[in-house]
Design a protein around this nucleic acid. Structure first.
Lengths: 225, 225
DNA sequence: GACAAAACAGACCGGTTGTCCTGTTTTGTC
DNA sequence: GACAAAACAGGACAACCGGTCTGTTTTGTC
C-alpha cells in the first residue's frame, strides 16, 4: 500500500456508526451471549470487541471495567430474561401451580426441539460469580428473590380465592425454582433435556404413587421426596 | 543481600520435599479447594503453585496441562465427594426415600452451622466447564449419572421388598438430584442455607396439603408441583 | 555403589489479559 | 454556527497467563 493512501486512511480513519445508544445495546447483546455460552472469565474483552465490531475506546466509554459490563448484563438482561420466561407467564396463568408447570413444560419443549442445552442464564452466572464478588452476588440474589416472590405472590392470590390452603407460598416457590434450576443443571451437563420431563412426571407420580389409599395417609408424608 | 549469600543460595537451591506421591496429593488438595472456591478459570496455575508450595516443574511433571489437573480433580476428588456424601449414605439408609431425606437434612445442618455456602462441588464445576470442553462434560456427566443411578438402584431394592410400587426409580432419582442441586444453587447465591429446609418442608407439605382427602384424589396429581 | 528412571527446580517465552490514554468526531444547545 | 459535552477511535501498556525448556536431585533396582 502506498504512503499516500496510508496517509489518507490515517487522516480519515473510519466511518463511524453514528448510532448513539445502539452501540451500547450491541455490546450488551454480545456480552450476554458470550457470558451465557462461555462464562465470564472465559470471555475476554478482546473477543467481545471483535464480535461486536466495537473499538476499545467505545467499549470503555460505556463500561469502564469488565465488572461494570457484567453487572449491566445481569441487571438489564438476565433479570429481563427471568421476567419474560417465568414471572410474566406465572402471573398470567390460571393458578400458581399450573403456571409453574406450564413454564416448565414450555422450556422443556423448546430445549428438545433446539437440540442442545445452554442452561439457565441466571444459574450459569450465579455459580461462577456469586462467590467471586459481593456486588455480583447481591445482584444475582435479587433476581432469584424476585423470581421466588412472583411465584409466592401468585399462590397467595390462589389462596384468597379459597384454593391451596395447605401450601406455604414461600416454600412452594423455593421448591419450584430449585427443581427447575437443578434440572437445568443436569440437562446442561448431559446435553439432554429429557431430565426436565423426568422431574415433572416424578412430581406428579410422587403425589399419587400410593395405591393403598387412605390406609397409608400418614406415610404419604414421605411420598413427594 | 550480599553476593556471597546469593551465590550460596544459588548453589544449594532448596531443600526438597522428598515425598513421592505426597506432592501430587498436595496439588490436588489445593486445586480442589481453589476450583471450588474461585472456579477453574479464575484460578491460575501460579496461584496454585504458590499455595501448594510447589514449583512449576513439579506441577508440570504430575499434570502436563491445566486441563489434565482439572480432569484429575473431577475424576478423583469430585467423584469421591459425591460418593461419600450421597451414594454411600443412601446405600446404607433404610430406604431410598429416607436416605435422600437424611442426606438432605444432614447437608442443611452442616451448612447452617458452617455459616457460609460454597455450593455443590459437582454443580459448581459442571456449570463452568460442561460447555467449555467435551472431556470435562463427559467426566461431569458420568458423576451425575452415577449419583442418580445409586438412588434409583436403592429404590429398586425397596420395590423388591414390596414398597414404592408406584414410583419410577429413574424419575425419582432425577427429582432428588434436581431439588438438591437447585436448592444448593440458591443457597450459595443467597449465602443462606435455609432454602434447603424450605424445599424439604415444601415437599412434605405438597403431598399432604389436601384436607378434603379422597374426594380430590384425582386433583392430587397437581399437588406436588 | 552404579545407573537408569522418575521427581523435581527454576528460569524462560510468546501470547493475551484488562485497562488506560490521547486524540478525533459527532451531538445537543443557545 | 459557535462550543461544550458526550461518543467514539485506536494504539500503548504493564501484568500475567499457561506452557516449555534444561538441568539437578532423588529413588528404585541390580
Amino acid at each position: 500500500m502506498s504512503a499516500e493512501i496510508a496517509a489518507r486512511a490515517k487522516a480519515r480513519p473510519q466511518k463511524r456508526t453514528n448510532n448513539p445508544e445502539g452501540m451500547r445495546k450491541k455490546v450488551l447483546d454480545v456480552a450476554e451471549e458470550a457470558f451465557q455460552a462461555r462464562g465470564y472469565h472465559a470471555s475476554s474483552m478482546g473477543d467481545l470487541m471483535a464480535t461486536a465490531g466495537v473499538t476499545g475506546g467505545a467499549l470503555h466509554h460505556h463500561f469502564p471495567t469488565k465488572k461494570a459490563l457484567a453487572l449491566a448484563v445481569i441487571e438489564e438482561r438476565v433479570a429481563a430474561a427471568v421476567e419474560e420466561t417465568w414471572i410474566a407467564p406465572v402471573r398470567m396463568a390460571g393458578s400458581a401451580r399450573e403456571g409453574v408447570r406450564s413454564v416448565f413444560a414450555a422450556v422443556a419443549a423448546e430445549l428438545e426441539q433446539q437440540g442442545f442445552v445452554r442452561g439457565c442464564p441466571l444459574n450459569n452466572l450465579a455459580h461462577e460469580l456469586s462467590l467471586a464478588d459481593p456486588d455480583f452476588r447481591t445482584a444475582l440474589a435479587g433476581i432469584f428473590s424476585a423470581w421466588r416472590q412472583a411465584i409466592a405472590d401468585k399462590l397467595r392470590v390462589d389462596q384468597q380465592a379459597g384454593r391451596e390452603q395447605g401450601t406455604d407460598p414461600q416454600r412452594f416457590a423455593a421448591l419450584a425454582v430449585a427443581i427447575y434450576s437443578g434440572a437445568m443443571s443436569m440437562a446442561k451437563t448431559a446435553q439432554d433435556a429429557s431430565v426436565l420431563r423426568d422431574c415433572l412426571v416424578a412430581l406428579e407420580q410422587g403425589a399419587t404413587s400410593s395405591k393403598t389409599g387412605a390406609r397409608r395417609r400418614r406415610r404419604i408424608l414421605h411420598r413427594a421426596l
